[in-house]
Design a protein around this nucleic acid. Structure first.
Length: 431
RNA sequence: GUGGGUGUAGCUCAGUUGGUUAGAGCACCUGAUUGUGGUUCAGGAAGUCGGGGGUUCAAGUCCCCUCACUCACCCCA
């Protein structure tokens, strides 16, 4: 606590956090509007969970041996409590589902959430420390139609925004026994080569074998050539599920690319995993990632109910929309009337007229900067208002106001008393 | 965490081998038009040249450190 004059400095938003300025809010609203509409049409209900949760919720669900938990969480310690800003949406939704008793009262839930997530990472293109996600979750169903429904919905979201050339990639992570058998096969495959792997791989080998294959270290990638592929280990049941999801999507004319390389970075995934890519984006082309998490609810203390969902990141979506020139064309609604004061006597009248119009349901603004008449007219025109109403001592004396059509560039005088009605008429004629 | 690039007016940038008061366009303000807008013309305001240190008679320009932004790797939405 210093006293006296403090040094003058400027402030910036924290690293990796950005402002959405008024000129960009239109696109954001559009993304949310499309998300809400598509979700609503399909019977998904909106849910809003807290921005932070007990840290343990994430270590349990996302997995201790994941980048998210190992190095990307914003954690706050308050006394005994450890709280973490949510790095993703599914864990919180699953927790809320159990807490609300849905597991017993109404296990089948289709839910969606739109909101900010937080990860402590080094920012770069398409990656921020606070980012917004659109999360979709179907809880309580193992039906392959649920998988296909959410996958189709993910792709539809982007298409609805005008994007083309998307790629839907999927894989299966198996479940239970086949997952165990695969894990064993990987362990056998890797064991003789472990000495040559990097430190991270060696640590993962004992803690979570499957993630060893995730390593991008060139030496390790080389060592992984010829590693067993999980699709060869699927049980008949899981194989049938995998095939059925593809069939369903093909019946919607939706092409799916099977990509055995998709191993999602979160431990809770089982069976179906998928990503929606926009290949032209390059480095970070995945706009959406998702899949099944059939044991997450049980891992969090609930019954063993299956679920499937995805998360779409707005950051990447906005970059693509910008690249495609689809961000423009969103005209912001602006008040119809600019009320201008011709002189100092008019300033009070301007205030009263504006409020009278607003009370009558007409949008109106006026100058708050002591601008001269000319500057006010300039502002009216720059602001894209349709009408200007001019109030000055001359008008006040005669009980009228000047009504000017800024588009047609015509003007008339109308009775001050009938201003709302006259403005309505003028607006109707310029429709 | 590891590399690369960039930091000059609100924004986009120019500033030549270091050399007098640091420039342009856009935006902003004023006037031409003493009560009327999108054009034009004239004028004006606006910069600790990211910050600190060093070399030099002289640094926006060269060197070192630092911070910020940005791109890529890692990972991921």
């Amino acid at each position: 606590m210093t006293e006296g004059k403090t040094e003058k400095r400027s402030y910036r938003s924290p690293r990796g956090l950005r402002d959405v300025l008024p000129q960009d809010v239109g696109v954001w609203n559009r993304l949310e509007e499309v998300a809400r509409r598509l979700a609503g049409q399909r019977g998904f209900s909106e849910i809003r969970t807290p921005m932070f949760e007990e840290t343990e919720l994430f270590t349990r669900s996302v997995g201790e041996v994941t980048d998210i938990v190992e190095k990307e969480m914003f954690t706050i310690k308050k006394g005994e409590h450890s709280l973490t800003l949510r790095p993703e949406g599914t864990a919180g939704i699953a927790r809320a589902y159990l807490q609300a008793g849905f597991a017993k009262s109404a296990p089948m839930q289709k839910l969606f959430l739109i909101g900010p997530m937080f990860r402590y990472e080094r920012p770069q293109k398409g990656r921020e420390r606070q980012f917004t996600q659109f999360d979709i979750e179907v809880l309580g169903s193992l039906d392959p139609r649920a998988d296909a429904e959410v996958m189709h919905l993910a792709a539809s979201f982007f298409e609805e925004l005008g994007m083309e050339g998307l790629e839907l990639r999927m894989n299966s992570m198996g479940d239970g026994e086949d997952r165990d058998r695969y894990r064993e096969a990987i362990r056998e495959f890797l064991a003789p080569k472990m000495a040559e792997h990097c430190e991270l791989c060696q640590s993962r080998f004992t803690r979570n074998v499957l993630r060893v294959l995730d390593c991008k270290n060139p030496t390790c990638v080389e060592l992984h050539q010829g590693a067993p592929i999980i699709l060869d280990y699927l049980s008949a049941e899981n194989r049938a599920h995998f095939d059925e999801v593809q069939d369903l999507l093909e019946s919607l004319d939706r092409k799916v690319v099977v990509d055995p390389g998709i191993v999602r970075g979160l431990d809770y995934y089982t069976r179906t995993v998928f990503e929606v890519h926009y290949p032209a984006l390059g480095a970070r082309s995945a706009l959406c990632g998702g899949g099944r998490y059939d044991h997450l609810l049980s891992d969090l203390g609930g019954p063993d109910l299956p679920a499937v969902g995805f998360a779409i990141g707005f950051t990447g979506t906005l970059i693509v929309l910008d690249q495609l020139g689809l961000k423009s064309g969103l005209i912001e609604d602006v008040p119809d009337v600019y009320v201008a004061a011709a002189d100092d006597d008019g300033r009070r009248g301007v205030f009263e007229v504006a409020e009278e119009l607003r009370a009558g349901g007409i949008g109106a603004v006026f100058d708050l900067e002591d601008k001269r008449m000319k500057a006010q007219m300039k502002a009216a025109s720059k602001g894209n208002h349709r009408l200007a109403i001019i109030v000055g001592s001359d008008e006040l004396a005669r009980g009228v106001v000047t009504l000017k059509d800024l588009v047609q560039r015509t003007q008339t005088e109308v009775e001050r008393a009938g201003i709302v009605e006259a403005t309505r008429l003028a607006l109707a004629s310029t429709e």
